[in-house]
Amino acid sequence: MKGKSLQDLQQLKAKLAHDRERAAAEAAARQAAEKKAAAERDLFKRAAGPVAPLRHPVRVRLAGDPPPPIPVQHQLDEQRVLLESISDDFDATTLLDVDDAMSFRRPGVGLDVTRKLRKGHWSIQRELDLHGLRREDAREALAEFIRETHRQGIRCVRVVHGKGLGSPGKTPVLKGKVQGWLVQKKEVLAFVQARGDEGGAGALVVLLKPLGG
């Protein structure tokens, strides 16, 4: 019995020593893991060096809405229109041909063009009626009409200005103005007084230059 007790005591001591070694190993492993984690946490601090906290919290100022884009092309178009504006004071009477009916042809354009125009050689593709418009409004409307129809490649148009029967003294003021305005438009090759069935003395048939011509 005494020998068995001694053997049990030795086994117990061995077990206690083993437990102590295992506990020490686990403690060492935990300590190493904690050191590694701490080192990883402090990596940025060590890389950045000593820093001082900001006195004020960081604030980001958001930029306002950007200004609208400048309509450069529109401005250029307006400038071009101003350069091409037509004058009220232009006297076209010296440039008009007075044959069997009034007509105009730009220098270099033959008489056959106005003859063909009067006979309906070119079909009328668009019409502008200036009845009831004030002089300023009529001038702007005519300039825009000629510019746009030429841009669309249209060759022949009719401009109705009226016979002036409703004007003071029944003088066709707008008729003379329209003739002067058309002479100033570079897109216009020629124009003739319309035939009776097309408006007669109250309208003009206008031939425009070919697009790109």
Rank of each mutant, 00 (worst) to 15 (best):
H74K: 13
D42G: 04
R80L: 15
G169Y: 04
V98N: 06
L128N: 02
A39W: 05
E78V: 15
S85C: 11
E127M: 07
Q79P: 00
K185H: 03
G153V: 03
G64W: 02
S123Q: 14
A138T: 02
M1C: 06
G64Q: 04
Q73F: 03
A23I: 03
P66E: 08
A138F: 06
Q10P: 00
L83H: 15
H161L: 13
G202Y: 01
F44M: 15
L211F: 13
E144R: 15
G49T: 03
L208I: 03
L54C: 03
A24D: 11
L83T: 05
L62Y: 07
Q73A: 15
P71E: 02
D77G: 01
L54E: 04
L76Q: 11
H150I: 03
G153T: 03
A32T: 13
A201S: 13
F90D: 10
G202Q: 09
F44N: 05
H74Q: 14
V178N: 08
L117Q: 07
V51F: 00
A203K: 01
S123G: 04
R22D: 13
G213H: 08
V192F: 04
D197C: 05
G3M: 02
F145Q: 12
G64S: 09
A25Q: 14
D112E: 14
I124Y: 10
V188L: 06
P168A: 06
P71I: 10
P107H: 12
V173E: 04
H18W: 10
R41F: 06
A28H: 04
G64E: 14
L12M: 14
H161E: 04
A201C: 01
A190T: 06
P53H: 02
R151L: 12
K119V: 00
R151F: 07
I86N: 01
G132Q: 07
A63G: 05
L9N: 12
G110I: 04
E148K: 08
G196V: 07
R55D: 09
E148D: 12
Q75D: 04
E148I: 06
Q184H: 05
